[in-house]
């Protein structure tokens, strides 16, 4: 009897699958997703990675760049470890991609979870995310130097909020302390959005938010970027707020704070992906980059729009891992 019930299901399932899968398959040999594509964000909602992934979801759907739908899922548990381990565990499933932030390197280093970026298949670098030094407009600071001097005078009572612990924000804070001798109390929050709000509410003195995470508050007249942690100024000339454009904001180096830190916004996919599968996603993201919506996002968030794929990308990631290892070691953030 059990058999008959199985048969029943078998037949019914077959009927359903026939009905729902009856889609014309393209004649070309190029690989295409045959199921909905899961787009994992190893971070919370409202942060930089989340904003980018959701914008991409909108672009892909609006311009019909993919036949299958794209489902965006936040897997932020364990400082993003949840998301990375999920993709790592989906070997051979080409319907899973993940966007990265620096926790691609820092989370396994700080926690010792069994993960390394080499467990994934690199797809492409979409852009590099900048970092700014942000202060509240209630405070008199207009330049990084004024701020750092005040922080020194305050004798270690200035508070710096940032995303997570032993991640990029704290790495930068650590670098500022080393470079200037000023001491900060670093207060970890759950996401970039929450970090910015703590600064708006004057609960901390500064943050190192990504531009996109705090730009809305700059426009609202609450926050002010003092400088970019980059080697040269960005080129976006459109006025954002206070009559200034991103290009008017100096680099921190110009202001005597010689720190450069950019963060990878890259796409990886599950291990064991074939070349055709990687090529599909590379093609997809090339198309995404050509849309006006993407260009607007890049401008709003003052992104560095470097695009990289293939070996160049893999090499870049390897070098970046090395750099993070040094940074984490120097700061004493490595798991014992």
């Amino acid at each position: 009897m059990k058999r008959s019930s199985k048969h029943f299901l078998l037949g019914a399932v077959a009927a359903i699958s026939a009905a729902t899968y009856f889609m014309p398959t393209p004649a070309t040999a190029a690989w295409e997703p045959t199921r909905p594509v899961e787009f994992i964000i190893p971070a919370g909602t409202g942060g930089g990675a989340d904003q980018m992934a959701r914008t991409i979801q909108g672009i892909v759907t609006k311009h019909n760049l993919m036949k299958q739908p794209m489902v965006v899922i936040n897997k932020s548990g364990g400082a993003g470890g949840e998301g990375f381990l999920d993709v790592k565990g989906s070997k051979g499933n080409p319907h899973k991609i993940i966007i990265t932030l620096s926790n691609l390197f820092t989370t396994p280093m700080a926690t010792g979870i069994p993960f390394n970026w080499k467990d994934l298949t690199p797809v492409a670098m979409l852009a590099l995310d900048e970092f700014n030094l942000w202060v509240n407009t209630d405070k008199p600071f207009k330049t990084a130097k004024e701020f750092i001097d005040a922080a020194k005078t305050a004798n270690g009572t200035f508070k710096m909020a940032g995303t997570g612990s032993k991640q990029e924000d704290q790495i930068i804070t650590e670098a500022i302390q080393k470079a200037t001798g000023a001491k900060f109390i670093y207060i970890p929050e759950r996401g970039g959005g929450a970090v910015a709000v703590q600064l708006v509410g004057n609960h901390v003195e500064s943050t190192v938010n990504n531009p996109i995470e705090a730009v809305a508050h700059w426009k609202g007249g609450k926050l002010r970027p003092l400088c970019f942690f980059d080697s040269k100024r960005v080129t976006y000339k459109e006025v954002v707020a206070e009559g200034k454009s991103w290009a008017d904001i100096p680099t921190c180096k110009e202001q005597g704070l010689d720190i450069v830190y950019l963060m990878l916004r890259g796409i990886f996919m599950s291990p064991g992906a074939t070349k055709e599968q990687v090529d599909f996603y590379v093609g997809l993201f090339r198309k995404v980059r050509d849309t006006p919506e993407w260009k607007k996002l890049m401008e709003d968030g003052a992104f560095n729009t470097t695009f990289m794929t293939g070996d160049a990308f893999t090499k870049w990631v390897a070098a970046e891992e090395k750099r993070h290892e040094e940074l984490m070691k120097a700061a004493g953030f490595m798991a014992k």
Binding site: M1, S4, S5, F8, L9, A12, V13, I16
Partner: peptide, 11 residues
Amino acid sequence: YVVAVAAGTPL
């Protein structure tokens, strides 16, 4: 009845 419910639910 058993088969109908047991197979129908997963479906």
